[in-house]
Design a binder for these strands. Sequence first.
RNA 1: GUCCCCAUCGUCUAGCCCGGCCCAGGACACCGCCUUUUCACGGCGGCGACGCGGGUUCAAAUCCCGCUGGGGACGCCA
Length: 481
Amino acid sequence: MSSDKTVRVRVAPSPTGDPHVGTAYVTLFNYVFAKQNGGKLILRVEDTDQNRYRKASEERILKGLKWLGLQCDEGPDVGGSYGPYRQSERLPLYKKYAKTLLEKEKAYHCFCTQERLAEARETQKKEGGRFGYDRHCRYLDKSEVEKKLQGGISSVIRLKMPTEGEGSFIDELRGPITIDYNQLDDQILMKSDGFPTYHLANVVDDHEMKITHVIRAEEWISSTPKHVTLYEAFGWEKPQFIHLPLLRNTDKSKISKRKNPVSLDFYRRKGILPETMINFLGLMGWSFKAEEREKFSLEEMVSSFKFSDISLGGPVFDQKKLSWLNQQYIQTMPQEKFLKHCREEMFSESILKSIYPLVRERLDSFDEFFEKFSFFFTLDLKYENLSLVPKEKTASEMKTIFLELSLLLDEIDIWSLATVTQVMNSYLKDKALKPKEFYMPLRLILTGRQDSPPLLETMEALGRDVVRYRLQWVCDHIFTG
RNA sequence: GUCCCCAUCGUCUAGCCCGGCCCAGGACACCGCCUUUUCACGGCGGCGACGCGGGUUCAAAUCCCGCUGGGGACGCCA
C-alpha cells in the first residue's frame, strides 16, 4: 500500500448499547495498521439514530477500548484537529453537503411516506426479485417538488444512483468486487428528522477527516458501491477499502448477544485479561507467522502484521479457547500484577461499595462472607438442588418470561436501582404475574440461593451483564424442553 | 427471492498467491496414559479435515469451471 501520505484510519462505533467485541475486533486491526505505519487512529461516534441512541453507551465504549489498551489518537475524549468527533455535532456539515448534491442534481427530495414504502416492499417480496425503492419521486418535476416543500410536507433526500451498468471497487483483501446497479436503490442520505444516514455521514466524515483506509466489517461490502457513487458525486478521492471477516456465533451466524456474550464489560467481569482479549481477537482471522506460537502481545502483532495474512472465513468466537488463552496469561502473571488485578478488578472499590449495604446486616462474622455472598463474585452458579420452575408454571413459560425480561433489561440506558425497579414493576404488571411465581425463581437464578439480600438491590449490584448472563444461561440450560 | 462474499479437523488456523517437500502441520476441545497424597499444571499418545463433480497438468489442498453448503446485504439501523 502506498505511503505518500500519512495513514489515517478510523473506528466508528454507534452508541446504541454494550461495548461490543466486534467493535474491539475492528478497532484492533485499525490500531495495529495505524501504529505500524506511523499513522493515526481516529474514533468517531456515529450517533445519528435518535431512536437507538443510548446516552451511557458512548462512555462504556470508550472505557472498553481503553481497557484493552487501544488508545485512539483523535476522538471525542482526546480531541484533535478534525473535530467534532460526534456526528450529532456535525449536522451543519451534512446539511451543507446534501445541499451541494441537490444543486448538482446528484440527489433529490423524496416525499414518499414510510407506509407507502413498506407496502411496496411487501409487494416486491411477494413477487420475488430485489427489494428496493421504486424511484417514484426521482422524476417529479421541479415545480411540484417546490410546491411540496413549500407546503411543509415531510421529506428525505435520496442519492441518484446510476440506473444501469455496474459499480465496482477494490477490496484490498478480496480484489475487485462488482455489483450491478440494478441491485442498488436510491439510498436515503438525509432523514426527515434532519439527521444524515450512515452512508452520507460516513463518506462526508471520512473525507473531512482525511481517512486513507476504511477498515470495517464485511457486512458493509454490499453498500460500498453506494459510497463510491457518493465519492464520485462529490468529486472526492476515495480511500482504500478493507473488509474484515465477521465474528461468528457457534452456529456460524453473525455474532449476536442472543447467542453469545458480546459485551466487553461482561468479559472484564468474567476475569478475562485485556491482553488475553487482544491476543484472542488477533487470532480471529489472523495468525502470528513470525514465529509459530499463538500467544503474542499487541506490540508483537503491530510489528509483524500484514493484511495479506488474513484469512477470510468467518471465525467462530470460541469461549473455550478464550479461557485457555487467559489461563496462559494468568500462569505467567507476575505477583505484582496478580495482586493488582485482585484488588482492582475482583474486589474493586466499586463492587465492594455496592454490596456493602447489602451484606453488612447479614454477617455475623467475616468468615461467612464467601459462603453467603460468593454470587457477587462468581459468574457461573450451581443450581443443582434448586427448583427454578414453580408448580403453577412450565419450563417453557419460565423461559418466555425470563427471555422477555432479559430483553427489557437490555433496553435500560443507565443501570440503577430506580431504572431496574421501574422495568421490573411494569413487566410484572403487564404480564399480570404473581410476585410469588416470579420473584423467587428470579432470586434463585441470580443468586443461586433462597436467602439473599433484597432482589432489586442485588440486581443493581450485580450489574447488567451478570444479570443478563445468568438469565440467558438458565433459559438455555434449565428451562428447556 | 435477488445480489455479493466465503469454503482445510467439532472450533481457531498453517499450507494455497509462486502446483511436487502434504496419504496435510500446530492449537483449543474431547479421550487415554504418565507425573502426582488430592485437584490443577505439565509430559506423552489417540481421535479428527482438504465439501462434491468436472477440467488443466507427468503431478492439484494448491490453478479454472460448475454444483452444494455457510454467511452477509437488500431499513428514514449502523
